[in-house]
Each structure stands twice: as structure tokens, then as C-alpha cells.
Amino acid sequence: MNTPKNNQSGKSKKWIYLLVLVILISSLGYVFLRKEEVTKEETKTSTITETNDSKKDSLIQVIPNEQTEFFSKEEGKALLWYAMVNDSIVFYKNKGKHPVTGADLLLVTEEIIKKYKEAQKPAKEVAKVDPRTYKVKEMKIIKKKEKPVVVEKKVKRETIWNTSLENSKDRDEVSLFVFDENDQIDKALTKRLKEEFIKRDYFITEDIIYHSEMTPEIASHLKSSNVQYFDGNLKKYTDFICIGIVKYTYKENAYRNDLLDCTMNIEYFIYDAATAQQMFSEKDKLIGSDQTKKGARREAIKKFIL
């Protein structure tokens, strides 16, 4: 039979065991909770690292232009970062490491901006130097001779008539006058008419009236066969007067756009120098083509035949 003392001792041991058990359980719980906190901390750290790594991969590159602000207007702080890659400057909006070289990005400076702008200027063309060398023993300055200006002096004549001419009595002579639209002598066509008349055995006198003395008034009377105006002088120097009146017009060739067509309309007639009786009258239309007006006119004149 247990005594009260023994019973009291047994109860004390039970409480001790219970206390130790509680302490042990508490210790195990603390260890478990601490381990869980450490695990969470490591997970958080890992997440932060991954976030930082992702930021590195999301660098925003900037290609500067006229509107790009490198520094804040208020405080003058740098707004961009840069990296040197193969002697080139690359700009970014955010801080980090260069994705290729791994170098830390640096804040821009005035010197870097100046260097970048200098690199963007177009390269100046270098003048090519002729490798050959020349030795100049003596330099001579040769002044270009100026051609003297020749002023044609108008010969002062006492009469409009070519008094060196004389009308021969044993042959019929013809004097030619070909006028353009301005009542000026058309020398080229006059020459062509002379050639044609000579082919047909006409005797052509030289110009009985000097070309330099020809006026619209004289031309008008010659074209209208007004022999009375000349007071018998026409007959004094020639037997017949041949008058030609010509008009030129131009247009593009219908088949070739590099050519011009010249249409020459000519009316010519012959009258007696003494009586003004008309002996012959004819009209003709000729077309010449060339790349210039002068050439086209020349080709039209070539086609003229009596």
C-alpha cells in the first residue's frame, strides 16, 4: 500500500515529465516556424533578384534627335544613361547593364553629348592630291589680245543707184529683188533665184539699187510696179525687174520631234522696167526640214526651181 509521501513523489514526477514534453513540443514548433520564415525570406530574395534581372533585359534604347532632352531643365540632372560599344555611343532611358557587354550604364555628361554630336556630322570630303609633281622654272603672264571692235561705217552715197552699171543694148537684162515680210532683201533667196535664171540663159545685172539704201518706201514702189516713181532710172540700168515676195512659217515635223519644218511661200513676177507691163507671174510653196529654223529655211530655199 502506497503511503501519502510516495503518492506525492509520483505526482511530482508526472508533472516534470509533462513540463519537459511541453518544452520539447514548443522547441520543435519554434524550429519549424523559424525554418518556414527562412524559406520565405529566401523565396522573396530570389523573386527580387529575378525582377532585377528582368529589368536588365527590359532596357529602353534611345536614338537621340533634335527634341531629345539629355538633362532636366530645372536641375540640370542627367536623364539618360549610355554605354560605349565599338567606339559608338548608345543611349538608354533606364539604368542597368549593357545587354551584350555587361558593362554598367553610366549617366550622360556634356562631354559625351559633344562627342556624340561630332560623330554624327557628315565626313568632309578630302581633296585628292595629284601624286605627280611639276617644277615651274618660270611663269609667264600672257595677256590675251583683245580683238579690235570694227565699226562698220555707213558709206555716204549721193544716190541710191549703182552708177557703175550700164544697160547693154544688145541683150535683155533682169534685175532681182526678193523681199521678206519686213521689206528687207532676202539675200539667200535672191542668190538662189539668180542661179535659176542663169540656168535658163537670162542675163542678171548686179543690184541696181544698193541694199544699204533700200527703204520700205522704195520696196513698196518696186513691188507695186510703179516705174514712174523712179523717174526712168529703172530702164537706165536694166530691161526687166523681177520681184519676189517670201514668207516663212515654222512648225514641228509630224514624224520626227527632233526636226522643224519650214514652209516657204513665195510669189514672184517680172515686169518691164520702162512700161511696168507684167511679163510673168508665179506662186510656189516649198517645205524644208532640219533641227534648227535656219537650217530648215536653208533646205526650203534649196528646193526652189523656176
Rank of each mutant, 00 (worst) to 15 (best):
residue 37 E to W: 01
residue 244 G to L: 07
residue 281 S to W: 11
residue 156 K to M: 12
residue 240 F to P: 01
residue 168 S to T: 11
residue 5 K to W: 01
residue 55 K to A: 13
residue 223 K to Q: 13
residue 212 S to D: 14
residue 46 S to E: 12
residue 198 I to Q: 14
residue 247 K to W: 10
residue 281 S to P: 00
residue 299 E to S: 01
residue 176 L to E: 03
residue 22 V to Y: 09
residue 128 K to Q: 13
residue 170 D to Y: 04
residue 258 D to L: 02
residue 99 P to E: 15
residue 168 S to M: 15
residue 26 S to M: 06
residue 22 V to G: 05
residue 290 D to L: 00
residue 148 P to T: 01
residue 35 K to Q: 01
residue 6 N to K: 10
residue 301 I to R: 12
residue 256 R to E: 04
residue 273 A to G: 07
residue 21 L to V: 11
residue 238 T to G: 05
residue 142 I to Q: 15
residue 73 K to N: 00
residue 306 L to G: 01
residue 211 H to M: 14
residue 72 S to C: 03
residue 90 V to M: 08
residue 5 K to I: 05
residue 188 A to K: 04
residue 11 K to V: 07
residue 116 Y to A: 04
residue 82 Y to W: 03
residue 169 K to G: 05
residue 36 E to M: 05
residue 114 K to V: 13
residue 219 A to D: 06
residue 303 K to R: 03
residue 51 T to Q: 11
residue 109 T to E: 02
residue 206 E to M: 05
residue 201 D to W: 02
residue 249 T to K: 06
residue 159 T to W: 08
residue 156 K to F: 14
residue 109 T to Y: 01
residue 256 R to A: 14
residue 278 Q to D: 04
residue 196 E to D: 10
residue 186 D to Q: 04
residue 191 K to I: 01
residue 79 L to P: 00
residue 11 K to Y: 13
residue 220 S to A: 14
residue 193 L to F: 15
residue 119 A to V: 13
residue 237 Y to L: 04
residue 189 L to F: 08
residue 61 Q to P: 05
residue 84 M to K: 11
residue 279 M to A: 11
residue 258 D to K: 09
residue 232 G to K: 08
residue 89 I to S: 06
residue 186 D to G: 09
residue 275 T to A: 05
residue 99 P to L: 09
residue 9 S to E: 14
residue 223 K to L: 13
residue 240 F to T: 05
residue 31 V to E: 02
residue 2 N to K: 11
residue 61 Q to D: 06
residue 28 L to D: 08
residue 63 I to R: 13
residue 249 T to H: 04
residue 152 E to A: 11
residue 118 E to W: 13
residue 157 R to W: 06
residue 296 A to G: 08
residue 15 W to N: 04
residue 264 M to T: 03
residue 81 W to T: 00
residue 5 K to L: 05
residue 119 A to N: 08
residue 32 F to L: 07
residue 89 I to N: 13
residue 263 T to K: 10
residue 156 K to W: 10
residue 100 V to K: 11
residue 87 D to T: 14
residue 49 T to R: 12
residue 124 K to E: 05
residue 199 K to E: 07
residue 278 Q to H: 07
residue 187 K to L: 08
residue 255 Y to L: 15
residue 208 I to Y: 13
